[in-house]
């Protein structure tokens, strides 16, 4: 879980960097995409690798969910949490499923949609209000998923030290916000017509 999560965070970083070109212009983004596609080996390796990591993350997540549900076969009559602000950790499976739905739709639209250039696809896509909202909602789901996932990953790796814990704590808030801003502002950009 943590290992695949870590790789997925790396992927998010590179994806965010690539997408950031959109802030400059669609043309630059297009050039970036063309550049990537000029190395078919890299694209195929990356996409297959990514698919594999995704599947691992999903399968282990689902297994974990089922195993854990079995370990606590009978729930309590009164369901309460002793930890405050535990919504993110309690809903990992649901935020995860939201992301999965998003990824499926996103890859379908971007990779298998009508064969225009990626730049045009993006412009078309975000001209729809509902699609933009769907994207933004998904990114909020991603941010929630990350807010627990990132800290949880470090804890699982055994990274927990009084000297760094407050830094990790801050990072686990800032990082999801960072991704939310980068990814979320793209549909906003186009929705309000400032993207070109």
């Amino acid at each position: 879980m943590a290992c695949s999560g870590f790789l997925l965070i790396l992927f998010l970083c590179s994806h965010a960097a690539g997408n950031a070109t959109l802030f400059s212009s669609v043309a630059l983004f297009q050039a970036y995409a063309d550049m990537l596609h000029s190395h078919p080996l890299i694209v195929s390796m990356f996409s297959k690798g990514l698919l594999l990591v995704f599947i691992i993350h999903i399968v282990t997540g689902a297994l974990l969910f089922l195993q854990n549900r079995r370990a606590r076969s009978q729930g309590y009559k009164v369901q309460r949490r002793a930890v405050k602000n535990s919504q993110a950790s309690a809903t990992m499976i649901y935020s995860g499923l939201t992301i999965l739905l998003f990824v499926l739709l996103h890859t379908y639209v971007v990779s298998f949609g009508n064969h225009k250039t990626i730049g045009e696809t993006i412009v078309n896509l975000f001209s729809s209000f509902f699609v933009s909202i769907f994207y933004i909602v998904s990114f909020i789901g991603l941010a929630i998923h990350l807010s627990h996932g990132f800290w949880s990953m470090l804890q699982t790796f055994g990274i927990n030290h009084p000297r760094y814990n407050s830094f990790i704590q801050r990072l686990s808030y800032l990082m999801p916000i960072f991704f939310l801003l980068i990814f979320g502002s793209i549909p906003l950009l186009f929705l309000f017509g400032t993207g070109q």
Partner: peptide, 13 residues
């Protein structure tokens, strides 16, 4: 037959 940790922090609380 114990479950796995998903870092919910309930135990500590």
């Amino acid at each position: 037959g114990f479950g796995n940790c998903t870092n919910e922090r309930e135990c500590e609380a």
